[in-house]
C-alpha cells in the first residue's frame, strides 16, 4: 500500500485520457485512415464497453479504487474546494440538461432505416421479354478478350461510348461515383473503382442490376433506395454487355467467376 507515492498524472485523469484516446483512435482509424466512418450508434455502444473495461482495470485493486475515488471525494467534502465544487455542481446539471434538450429536439433527419446488406439477386429475372438465368448467364463478348483482342478493344470502346452517353452523369467520368448529379443522390452512386464493388461481382449480376435498375431490386432487400433507371427500356442487350466490358476494362478489375474458385 503505497499511498504517498505521487503520480505524474492523477489516476482519474489517466482514466479519462485513456477513454478519450480510445474514442479518438476509433475516429482516426475508421474515419480518417480507412475512410469508412464508424456509425455513431455502434461507436456509442463500443464506448460503453470500453468505459466498462477501463473502469474495471482502474478499480480492481483497493489502492487503484481509492486513488480514483479520492479526488471525487475531496471535491464533495473538502471545505477548501468550495469554489470548484460550486462550479461543478452548476455545470453538471446544465450539461445533463443540454444533452436532454438536444436529444429531444426535433430534427429534420429522416428516421434511421434498417437495410439488408446482401440483397440476394434472383436466380432468374425477366428482361427484354425473356428470362435470364443468373447462375449460368455469361457475357457473350468476354470470350473475345482472348480470341480476338482487336475486336475486344473495339467492343470496349463502344461500351465506353455508351457509358459516357448514359452513365457518367451519376457514376462519374472516372467511374468513381462522383458524376455531376451524384451529390443529389442518397445513397450515392456506386464507385466502381472501389475493390468492394464490381470486383466482387459476376458480370451476370451487373447485367441484372443494370437492366432492371432500382425497381428490380428484390422485396426482401427492402427498404432499399436506388434511383438507377431500368436500363432495358433505354439500352439494348448488347449495349449493356459492352458497357460491362468497359467498366472492368477501365477500372482494371476482373469480374468474379466461379470457375477460378
Amino acid at each position: 500500500m503505497n499511498m504517498t507515492k505521487k503520480r505524474l498524472i492523477p489516476r482519474l485523469l489517466q482514466m479519462a485520457l485513456v477513454v478519450v484516446a480510445v474514442y479518438f483512435t476509433f475516429i482516426l482509424v475508421f474515419d480518417v485512415l480507412l475512410g469508412q466512418l464508424i456509425p455513431k450508434s455502434l461507436l456509442t455502444m463500443y464506448m460503453v464497453f470500453v468505459i466498462a473495461g477501463v473502469v474495471m482495470v482502474f478499480t480492481f485493486t483497493e489502492q487503484g479504487a481509492q486513488e480514483l475515488a479520492g479526488p471525487i471525494k475531496a471535491l464533495v467534502e473538502d471545505p477548501s474546494r468550495k469554489m470548484v465544487r460550486n462550479v461543478v455542481f452548476v455545470i453538471v446539471p446544465l450539461l445533463a440538461g443540454y444533452y436532454t434538450y438536444s436529444s429531444m429536439l426535433p430534427s429534420f433527419e429522416a428516421p434511421v432505416e434498417l437495410r439488408t446488406i446482401h440483397p440476394a439477386p434472383p436466380n432468374k429475372f425477366k428482361a427484354y421479354g425473356k428470362s435470364f438465368n443468373l447462375t449460368t448467364l455469361e457475357n457473350p463478348y468476354r470470350k473475345f478478350e482472348k480470341e480476338d483482342p482487336v475486336k475486344f478493344k473495339e467492343l470496349v470502346k463502344e461500351g465506353g461510348n455508351v457509358y459516357i452517353q448514359n452513365c457518367q452523369y451519376c457514376h462519374g467520368d472516372r467511374l468513381d461515383g462522383k458524376g455531376p448529379y451524384a451529390s443529389g443522390l442518397n445513397p450515392t452512386p456506386l464507385n466502381f473503382q472501389d475493390v468492394g464493388t464490381i470486383a466482387q461481382l459476376q458480370e451476370s449480376f451487373l447485367f441484372w442490376r443494370i437492366s432492371t435498375g432500382g425497381p428490380g431490386l428484390p422485396a426482401e432487400a427492402a427498404p432499399w433506395i436506388s434511383s438507377m433507371p431500368v436500363w432495358q427500356n433505354f439500352l439494348t442487350e448488347d449495349e449493356i454487355w459492352k458497357v460491362i466490358l468497359f467498366l472492368y476494362d477501365y477500372t482494371g478489375r476482373r469480374p468474379r467467376s466461379w470457375a477460378n474458385e
Partner: peptide, 11 residues
C-alpha cells in the same frame, strides 16, 4: 430453394 445452396434450384 435459393442461391445459398440449402436446397436444389428449381429452374
Amino acid at each position: 430453394h435459393n442461391a445459398m445452396g440449402r436446397a436444389p434450384m428449381l429452374d
